[in-house]
Structure formats: C-alpha cells, structure tokens
C-alpha cells in the first residue's frame, strides 16, 4: 500500500515580480514501510513540498493542481481542523534544528506529556510512555531526563529527543527535514541508524529530506531528485545512484567531493544558474545548464520510465 501518493502537484506563490511556479508537476509515492529520500539544491522546492503536504503553505502560496493522497485521502481538500488532527498524530516531523522544535521553557517530560493530550491516558501512563520512548532513542537515565530542559541536552541528544517526540504517537508518516545536518559524522551515523531502527519498529514510512548524498545512499530505499521545483528523476536508491539517467542527477552525483577518490584541488561543479522560477523556460528546466542538450529539449520533456520504478524527466532517457 502507498502511504503518500503525490500526483501532478503544482504550487505557485504570488510575489511582487509575478507568479512563482515553485512546484511543477511533481509526482511520486511513499510506499508503506519505506524510507524515501528527497535530494536537491536549496531553492529546488523541498521545503515547499513539505509545507504543501502538511497544509502549512504561506498565505501567498496555493496548490493550483494535483493531489496529495495520504492513506487514500486527498490532503489538498481537507480543511484546517482536519489537517490539525493529522499533524503530530498521523504525520509528524523532525527538523534540522531541534532547539527550534522544542519549547525552551518547558521540561522535556511536560512537552512529551502534552503531545499525548488526545490519547485519553492518565498522567502517569503518559509519563511512562514518554520514558519508554526516551529509552528507545537511547537517552541515558530516561526517567531523570524527563525533568530536564532542552538546553541541558547536547546537540545529538536533543535531536534524539525530537525524534522520540515525533514518533510518540506512532505516526504513519515521518517527515525528516535535514535532521542530521548539524551533527558531526559519528553522531550523524548514529542518528540515521536510530531512525532506521525506529522506522522498522513502528512500521512507519519516512520522507527524508537532505542534501547529503552519502546519508541518502545509506539510509533511503528510494530517492527523488528535485531540480527547480520538478522531480527530474526518481527510483530506488540503487537505480539512481548507480545508473542515474537524468543529466542533472548524474552531474550532482559527480559533484560530491566524496566521489573524488584521489585528492583534488579542483572539484567538479555544474556551471550556470537555476532559472528564475517566475519565468520558467517552456521546455526542459535544466536545458540551459545541460551538456547534452538537443533541439527536442525546447519542448516539455516526458517522464520516461527507464525501468520499473525508475523514472527520468528527460528526452534522452529512453527505456533500455
């Protein structure tokens, strides 16, 4: 079953300089019990995508077309009250900065109790559940930790507290937005291993946003590559990392300093700039920076299924 199915999603923002087409014809699925990674440069629409799913688009933003089906129900048609019920219960989030996600003046235990206000449990049951959850994310001395405040935890522990809170209500979908960016390599790895373990335990799906290709390769089952508000390639992590079919995905992987085996003073880059999203080119959005450009790129590129589950939005990506 598919937990989240996004189909032909289009989001625009009205700005002083005209309408900004932030997401264009975005389609992908988050299947049950899978971790789907979203990669792309800043400004490619990752945050807009999350906000659209959560029903938290800014006032000047609107979903112009397409659907976001969560467990079969189209979120774009739900009212604010219904969305509020889903958030934190069925869909929860972990953000890059855990300090910003935790209330600095309430103890962790109090915040974790508050999350369970709909559960109908007694106060001591709620606290016991909080403690168990902290233990599960390997916070030492979990009972005492409940009485502590967010600033009393280290960065890595704080992020684990945030993960515990996000998974408290056993959501069907966890959205993790760059959750390890602020951590060093050892804590980053520990955090993604923990996420993987909890995801299997709770049997939820995860939408994992990152621009760290190494973390995506290690954690995710499937990958969605975004560029300038479009999904240019999607497939299993192996398909996309081993045989990228969209020129942008290929270049992005080549650019990762981790791919340079020998030490080099000159790292590869992608020359050119992302187009102005208020004036999208009529054809392929990557054409101006693409080194394989052909005449057909002036027309809207098709979504080519190069293999089962592996789709690239490029005229050159014929099926094998």
């Amino acid at each position: 079953m598919t937990v989240l199915a996004i189909k032909d999603l289009n989001v625009t923002f009205s700005t002083e300089g005209g309408r900004l087409h932030a997401l264009k014809d975005v389609s992908f699925d988050v299947p049950e019990r899978r971790i789907v990674g979203v990669v792309g440069e800043s400004g490619c629409g990752k945050s807009t995508l999350i906000n659209a799913i959560l029903g938290l688009l800014a006032d000047n933003g609107s979903i112009d077309a397409g659907s976001i089906a969560f467990e079969g129900e189209d979120l774009t048609r739900l009212g604010p009250a219904k969305m509020q019920e889903l958030r934190g219960q069925k869909i929860s989030t972990v953000f890059q900065d855990p300090m910003g996600a935790l209330n600095p003046v309430l103890s962790v235990g109090r915040q974790m109790r508050n999350i369970q206000y709909r559960s109908g449990r007694s106060r001591s049951e709620k606290d016991a559940r909080s403690e168990a959850m902290l233990r599960q994310v390997r916070i030492p001395d979990a009972q005492a930790a409940l009485a502590r405040y967010p600033h009393e935890f280290s960065g890595g522990m704080r992020q684990r507290v945030a993960i515990a809170m996000a998974l408290m209500m056993k959501p069907a979908l966890l959205i993790a937005d760059e959750p390890t960016t602020a951590l060093d390599a050892t804590l980053e790895v520990a955090t993604i291993e923990l996420l993987r373990e909890l995801q299997q335990d709770i049997a939820c799906s995860v939408l994992f946003i990152s621009h760290h290709l190494g973390v995506i390769a290690e954690l995710c089952d499937d990958v969605v590559v975004m560029y300038a508000g479009e999904v240019v390639e999607r497939g299993t992590t192996r398909q996309v990392f081993h045989t990228p079919r969209h020129p942008y995905a290929r270049r992005l992987l080549e650019c990762d300093p981790a791919r340079q085996s020998g030490r080099t003073r000159h790292l590869p880059t992608i020359p050119g700039e992302v187009p102005d999203l208020r004036q999208r080119p009529p054809g392929c959005v990557f054409a101006t920076r693409c080194d394989q450009r052909v005449d057909a790129c002036d027309k809207v590129p098709p979504d080519v299924a190069v293999e089962s589950g592996h789709v690239a939005r490029c005229v050159l990506a014929e099926a094998r």
Binding site: A185, G214, E218, F241
Partner: peptide, 17 residues
C-alpha cells in the same frame, strides 16, 4: 571513528565502522 563514520554516496559500499 570520525573517518570511518563518514557516509559515502554509494548504497552498496561495505561499511566498516
């Protein structure tokens, strides 16, 4: 430990952490 933890962009890379 830091060097061994460094995630590599290869889903099939053997990890010896």
């Amino acid at each position: 430990a830091l060097l061994s933890a460094n995630p590599e962009p290869d889903p099939d890379k053997a990890r010896d952490r």
